[in-house]
């Protein structure tokens, strides 16, 4: 049985969480001593340790001022997974393996960062067997990895339950990694992103170079859609290869604009292998 490589990435939020659980993120909860919020009259925050003499002298009429702080809190980090048949695609990389790697990495990073990790998986149904309520327990990364790696019996299913994934999430704003290949029709993608808009959504797009880049230049090939089972004949030639690439480029820009329109973060594109440092960079740049 294989184990996941503990690869940690760092993330930062661009918003203040509402949290009572101590953690590393800025929250709206007052208290603690980390994030300076401002000066308040002593009676509002009667803590003699925080009395600020300079601020008190600046006031008129004179009164005692106290420094107020925001708490640092923990949030829930979710991985929302697409388990449609197309995620079974395996060529230059194994998307299932890639998905398990990324999810475990998220779980590991969240746990290291003191956040709760939860997981929701969807195909045409929301998969209860793969549901993980947010938890802080150690070893969750390994558990999740084993669960995902041992999924068997993929049927020809889509990902139509994606918009219902929101029902499984906490109501408080959370960081949601939406992991899919994004081969969804426009309507479904829009609904999914809209339903998740109360949360901070990081779209993670899994693509394989064999889908559109690493294709033969010449020859006749039949291609089977593993999600719908339909066949298509492709008489490959340089012109068609170019058209496939440009079609994917269009698809890519469509995904980006759909995500930005729905208020999600910039999508993170993964091709063939998962680079954890690139994800860190992406998370820190985009926040």
């Amino acid at each position: 049985m294989s184990h996941f490589l503990s690869s940690e990435f760092y993330y930062r939020l661009g918003w203040r969480a509402r949290s009572v659980q101590p953690g590393s993120h800025a929250t709206r909860t007052s208290g603690g001593s980390a994030d300076f919020r401002g000066y308040v009259p002593f009676l509002e925050n009667p803590n003699p340790k925080r009395i600020d003499l300079r601020a008190s002298l600046r006031t008129f009429p004179k009164q005692l001022m106290v420094r107020a702080y925001h708490e640092r809190g923990a949030i829930a980090v979710y991985a929302v997974l697409d388990l449609s048949a197309s995620m079974r695609f395996s060529s230059n990389s194994n998307k299932t393996q890639l998905m398990a790697d990324i999810t475990a990495s998220i779980a590991w990073s969240a746990q290291r960062n003191g956040d709760a990790f939860g997981m929701v998986a969807c195909d045409d149904e929301v998969r209860n067997d793969l549901f993980e309520a947010p938890s802080y327990r150690r070893g969750i990364a390994d558990e999740v990895y084993q669960k995902l790696i041992s999924i068997s019996g993929w049927a020809q299913v889509g990902a139509s339950a994606f918009p219902r994934a929101i029902t499984q999430l906490r109501r408080k704003r959370s960081l949601v990694f939406l992991i899919s290949d994004y081969h969804l029709d426009d309507q479904l993608l829009k609904e999914t992103l809209t339903s998740l808009s109360p949360h901070d959504v990081v779209p993670v797009v899994l693509w394989d170079s064999a889908e559109y880049q690493d294709i033969p230049n010449w020859g006749w090939a039949r291609v089977r859609d593993i999600e719908t089972g339909r066949y298509q004949s492709l008489f490959l030639r340089p012109n068609l290869a170019r058209r496939i690439k440009s079609s994917y480029a269009t698809h890519r820009s469509k995904i980006v604009s759909a995500c930005l329109m729905a208020g999600a973060r910039m999508p993170f594109f993964i091709e063939d292998h998962f680079d954890v440092e690139a994800l860190t960079r992406h998370m820190l740049e985009a926040s």
Binding site: F89, K95, H183, E211, T228, F235, S247
Partner: peptide, 15 residues
Amino acid sequence: FPHPSMMSLPKDTLS
């Protein structure tokens, strides 16, 4: 050959 999605492949008359 399996492919994850035909939606992203262009329609080609010659093929």
